[in-house]
Simulated scan of single mutants.
Amino acid sequence: MRHFTYQGLPTQVTFGTGTVASLPAVLEQQGVRRALLLSTSRQAEQARAATSSLGDTIVGAFEGATMHTPVEVTARAHEALMASGADGVVAFGGGSTIGLGKALAVRGGVRHIAVPTTYAGSEMTPILGETTAGRKTTRRAPEILPHAVVYDVNLTLGLPPGISGTSGINAIAHAVEGLYARDTNPVMQLVAQEGIRALAAALPRIVANGGDVAARTEALYGAWLCGMVLGSVGMALHHKLCHTLGGSFDLPHAETHSIVLPHVLAYNAPAIPEAMAMLRTALGDQDPAGALHRLARQVGAPRSLRDLGMPEPGIETATEQALENAYWNPRPLERAAIRDLIARAWAGDPPVANESETA
């Protein structure tokens, strides 16, 4: 058995159907007496309805959460937090809102309770990504991790099929990189493999029938596990590249992950035989990169970075940025191959066969 270090995440997790009703008890356990409710403008009404049981504990609301957590939005939210006198935030929504909750918790020293409504997994990580002047940077620290998470399957039933699909593949990306992370361990590899299996099996069923409660339960369970992986071990080229693309070209987070993941996996495949074997088992396919590319099509994810609005000259910009600031990856970063990877993702081409591992 190889040597490894495993550090469990201390977040309190409540999982099930109808669990949003437990929010008053969760806030009491966390010592929160006055909470600021966070959401996007689109989810503001749903957030108010879902947290109505908190009554006067909600002392204010900020409804301007935005993807990639721009620092200027965080500054406005922090003003609202200070004005409300809240000692906690309830972040209701996906990665954009939960990212804002993390930023506020770190700046204001308040408790953070996350109520996820997508499969993004941000709620299970001590990672904060923020965007300043079009550049997204990330940092990891224990105090960034939300203090409690309430998973309620009912809150995902209205998630549109397209968003469900891309959000789920975004979660799968966390676990795929976790399988071969430099600091991975047998515990996280098992969690990653199970999370990938659950999501890959559930997402097509959800796209076919968004009201399939069993599939929704399986997907949310898988997203929780994949989020644990992202929060427990380091990432590599895939996440670096997606952060670069999202921050530089204002591309939607989950859709970008869905497009890029098969290409990065194909690039790294020759260097990660153990992870590829685990992926074959989890996906039930001998070509994991191809399987993830086909899954993205099956769930209706956008086909290309071009479809998301990335200009063709951005291929060169993204290539240069992906090679800045040395970071670990199982396969050395080769400029020509990285550029080709990005160009194929921009065009919507499938991952090339000679990038994939041979069985």
Score class of each variant (00 low, 15 high):
Ala86Pro: 11
Gly88Lys: 08
Met67Leu: 07
Thr51Val: 14
Glu194Val: 01
Ala318Cys: 12
Asp349Met: 11
Glu28Pro: 02
Val115Gln: 07
Ala318Thr: 08
Arg182Ile: 12
Ala322Pro: 07
Arg34Gly: 07
His257Ser: 00
Glu45Pro: 00
Gly290Asp: 13
Thr138Phe: 05
Val32Thr: 13
Trp224Cys: 11
Val187Arg: 11
Ala223Tyr: 00
Ala65Val: 09
Ile196Val: 15
Ile58Pro: 05
Leu220Ile: 14
Gln298Val: 01
Arg303Ala: 14
Ala105Asp: 03
Ile272His: 00
Pro161Leu: 02
Leu292Met: 13
Val32Asp: 07
Ile259Met: 04
Gly234Val: 02
Gly99Glu: 10
Lys102Leu: 07
Val150Cys: 05
Thr166Met: 07
Ala266Phe: 08
Ala289Met: 09
Leu292Arg: 00
Pro330Thr: 00
Gly108Cys: 09
Ala223Ile: 10
Asn329Gly: 07
Glu312Arg: 15
His239Ala: 03
Arg335Glu: 15
Ile338Lys: 03
Gly300Pro: 13
Pro146Phe: 11
Pro24Val: 00
Leu38Lys: 06
Leu155His: 05
Ala318Ile: 09
Gln43Glu: 13
Ile172Gln: 03
Gly247His: 11
Pro273Ile: 04
Ala301Leu: 06
Tyr327Val: 02
Phe92His: 03
Tyr327Ser: 11
Ala359Arg: 14
Leu323Gly: 13
Leu241Gln: 01
Arg76Val: 06
Leu251Gly: 10
Thr217Leu: 12
Val260Leu: 14
Thr40Asp: 08
Thr138Ala: 15
Glu357Cys: 01
Pro273Gly: 03
Pro330Asn: 06
Ala114Pro: 07
Phe4Ile: 04
Ala114Gly: 02
Ser39Gly: 08
Leu279Ala: 02
Gly8Tyr: 08
Ser52Met: 08
Ile272Trp: 01
Ala289Lys: 04
Arg205Ile: 06
Glu177Pro: 07
Arg2Val: 06
Gly210Lys: 04
Arg280Cys: 12
Glu357Asp: 10
Gly284Met: 10
Val73Trp: 10
Leu279Phe: 02
Leu159His: 09
Gly16Pro: 08
Phe249Ala: 09
Val213Ile: 15
Pro302Asp: 12
Asp152Thr: 02
Glu79Ile: 05
Pro252Val: 04
Ala181Cys: 12
Ala86Thr: 11
Glu357Phe: 15
His239Tyr: 10
Leu225Val: 05
Ala296Ile: 01
Arg42Tyr: 10
Thr184Cys: 12
